[in-house]
Write a protein that binds this DNA or RNA. Structure first.
Lengths: 191, 191, 191, 191
DNA sequence: GTGTAAGCGAGACGGTACGTCGTGTCTTGGA
DNA sequence: TCCAAGACACGACGTACCGTCTCGCTTACAC
């Protein structure tokens, strides 16, 4: 990746990328994805229009990049080597997610929104945000099965969808996602 | 309140509303919500721009109205007096929903999209589309409990969210919703 | 004129006409002809849109009607039987015109404006406002000639144009029309 | 001050300005000022709507610019060094004006019209079109006085107004301006 | 140390859609 | 037959954003 530097001509100003991502993310969090214009972002970043287009093809790509950088710094894989019960691990993991959901709910709404009309965006959002989190749950459930904490014939795929569906469902419908929901879900999973 | 016809001034031409809804819905189903412009809709309906704005404040409201009219003609409450097992009733009900989801997936995506940026819209969408369907499932589960087909200590609210979350989750992530998923869900509920 | 009453159906409400003319004239004097809309006039008069169109075909006709009613009440034919010098008569007549010009300057501007784009309007404005005033001057000059106060070979038509041109020229260019101009003009005519 | 080229950013495309002016002027001459829409002009010029608004705030300013460019190429200052009688010079100058008036009468009407409702426009029209022509006449009259061809006590300002008023008066009233009027005016001035 | 190629700001450009306004006509029910 | 109320088709308005383009200037490496 560091290899592909053409080393000819003036190098890209990394500060511009940083400024763009920061401004874009802030604006989207404040006003929602659709309400933010490219013009607004580049003005806010003190950067020219073309500079943005030199780095990202669309607003969607820029904003996603910015968001992921933030979000992925915050996923904390549960420690499957610990002896804590898998129910507790699940509950704690969900609580951690719900905490961010509280803060980022509106931007996430924006992304869900953008994902519906822009299939590229949807793919990226799924691959880089949704799927990794689903994977963690999936692994946790399998681990629980192998440890005998979960019935061996539980449909893991379905339960992964149940768990994530439960809070996405509340999210897109604008309902609050209380910390307690994490406990309720974990309890029902391991019943 | 339902009588509030003002009867003063020229009455609104109902045919215009009908034409607008039909054209709008068709276009959205063909090209997606965002790709359809107001100009396109009014031209297609042979109606003036202002006439649309006299009836709906935004494209979202128009399309929503049009869609509900269609969708609500298609909800079929399961017959709780029948002796069919509640698991089968649930499975059949979900299958029926999934069938429409297949066809209307993109428009539904549009609505979810619009709902994220427009909270009025979200409220309407929830009240008129999401909630009624959730209610049916909730009633069905309670009925199953009272008939002893479902454990009496199952968390009905949570399971309602599980069930709907499962397919909404797939929907917003652009994944197919196979008919078989209905069986899988029903099975897991009544396990 | 009073003959042509059809006497079938509800008679026209004369108060509506009066209100329309009054409102129209006031609005035009305040904001200028172009800035006043039909909608504004009918709302101001508390009258329906159709009622206006039942009486006048265009805004121009209504406004002209209203203006003429006012203006023609104010023309005062100089008394050609008096022994006052014709120069004084002319000067006094012009002074009287200039006085109204001061007040009505902007609406007159509006009419000149409307007259340029609407040839019907131009014709009516000329026939009912400009020409009568020109006629008076023409008659006065001829009378002065017959009394020997004016050179018999003066080109009356041209001088009529000179005299009116002089202040219309100032009017359309937005220059003030001082009372003293009346004296200057009269002096130069009878030099 | 004439050097104030900013030289930053993409420079304005001069061809677009030229095309806009040409199309605008042609359309106005064909159909009259009011009948020409901005949409029509930009389409005709193959230029985007915003490009027009980047250069002129209103249709009036554009058309005025276009017209001046044409008109000012056509003013021909009479040669005050020639020995031709000043009466002939005046008559010839007026004839030259009347010739253009014939062709441009309707556009000029449009400008007079616009000038009445828009005081900025009025100022520009006066400064750039009316006043220069009046100045020429004023100078010519003064020269005639200094050469003894005109009575030294003639009120030059008033006569300048007489002369221009005479044909403007006919113009705004939609009356023809025959070439012979130039002779009549000159004759009366130098009588 | 100079040439050359890319980066960059500023901002113009062709497009497309927007929501609003004004026009003159039409359509009701009631006077 | 008139009227108030207001819907309607039409067409223009000025604004907003998009993604691309065209300048003059500024890097920074490669010769």
């Amino acid at each position: 990746m560091s290899q592909e530097k053409s080393s000819v001509g003036r190098p890209k100003n990394e500060a511009a990328s940083t400024a763009l991502k920061e401004v874009a993310l802030n604006l989207v969090m404040q006003k929602g994805y659709d309400a933010v214009s490219i013009t607004e972002i580049v003005n806010g970043a003190g950067v020219s229009r073309q500079t943005l287009y030199n780095r990202w093809a669309t607003k969607a790509e820029l904003v996603l990049d910015a968001f992921f950088e933030l979000a992925n710094r915050r996923v904390e894989m549960p420690d499957l080597k610990s002896q804590t019960s898998r129910q507790t691990l699940l509950s704690d993991f969900l609580k951690q997610i719900f905490l961010h959901l509280e803060k980022d709910g509106d931007s996430l709404g924006s992304f869900v929104s953008a994902a519906q009309s822009d299939h590229d965006f949807r793919e990226k959002f799924y691959t880089r945000f949704v799927a990794p989190r689903a994977d963690i749950v999936r692994k946790l459930l399998k681990d629980a099965q192998s440890r005998g904490e979960l019935a061996p014939d539980k449909n893991i795929e379905l339960w992964t969808a149940f768990i994530h569906g439960a809070f996405w469902y509340r999210l897109i419908n604008g309902q609050p996602i209380p910390q307690d929901l994490a406990n309720e879900i974990a309890e029902e999973v391991f019943r």
